[in-house]
Design a binder for these strands. Structure first.
Lengths: 122, 122
DNA sequence: CTAACACATGAATATATGTTCATATGTTAA
DNA sequence: TTAACATATGAACATATATTCATGTGTTAG
């Protein structure tokens, strides 16, 4: 089965054969796995879910998730390193928010799969 | 910051307040993390990437990924359990293919994030 | 039926990872 | 400056997970 040149449906609309969307090298696949690994933890996905309601400080996150402050901080560090959340200091507190729209897109795509398998829609 | 009723942009177009897309409970978040965990492994994401070119049998997968047959089989089992790939027997061989369009959507959403951070586009 | 092949699976091992505890850093109020 | 607070971080420990090896199951050719 031959791979045909298709229109890229992701972040760009290019039809170039060299578009990294269609020609994914091993390093990119590794990075991709690393990205999904970040989404693949209960605590982190709950943080992401919470931040969809708006920015929140560490204390409130740990309160909402009933988790230790240290655990939340550690996970926020990982989320930050992956470019998924962004901190903003205000006095003593550190407010975190989702970094860009991709986070919600990935989350939404995963959720659609779960709900589809669950038979909710489609 | 109040959560306002928004139009669901995922698998359905409902505006119901009870739509699981907007009211995600803890169990669903747990399932979501489990799903991303499946994407969050180099071998599995490489299998998914390979299957985007079309169905493939276990032997050819292990050949293409330079991995052991057993390792591939173990990972295929996990992908199957998550509803991401589907097997089809043909004689002695077992051909695997991506289960539905969500797999490519999740993959694409993640890839868009990687490439965006890498500065390729947007 | 039997041998050969393709794939699946269980056990074992090594590695990765999340949480906790203790402590460090940074900020503000007094 | 000092005390109190919010967050970050390092070390240690427990758990989860991916691969390998050995073997089991299923299919086909002879």
């Amino acid at each position: 089965m031959e791979k045909e040149k298709i229109e890229c449906k992701n972040c760009c609309n290019c039809t170039s054969e060299n578009c990294p969307h269609t020609n994914v090298d091993e390093n990119t696949l590794y990075d991709l796995a690393e990205l999904f690994k970040v989404f693949g933890d209960s605590t982190r996905i709950r943080i992401i879910s919470a931040l969809m309601d708006g920015e929140m400080c560490v204390y409130h996150l740990s309160e909402r998730l009933s988790a230790g402050q240290s655990a939340i901080s550690h996970q926020l560090r990982i989320l930050r390193a992956a470019g998924l959340v962004r901190p903003r200091r205000e006095g003593k507190e550190m407010y975190y928010s989702l970094d860009d729209e991709h986070v919600e897109e990935i989350y939404g795509a995963g959720l659609a799969h779960i709900l589809h398998k669950g038979g909710f829609c489609e």
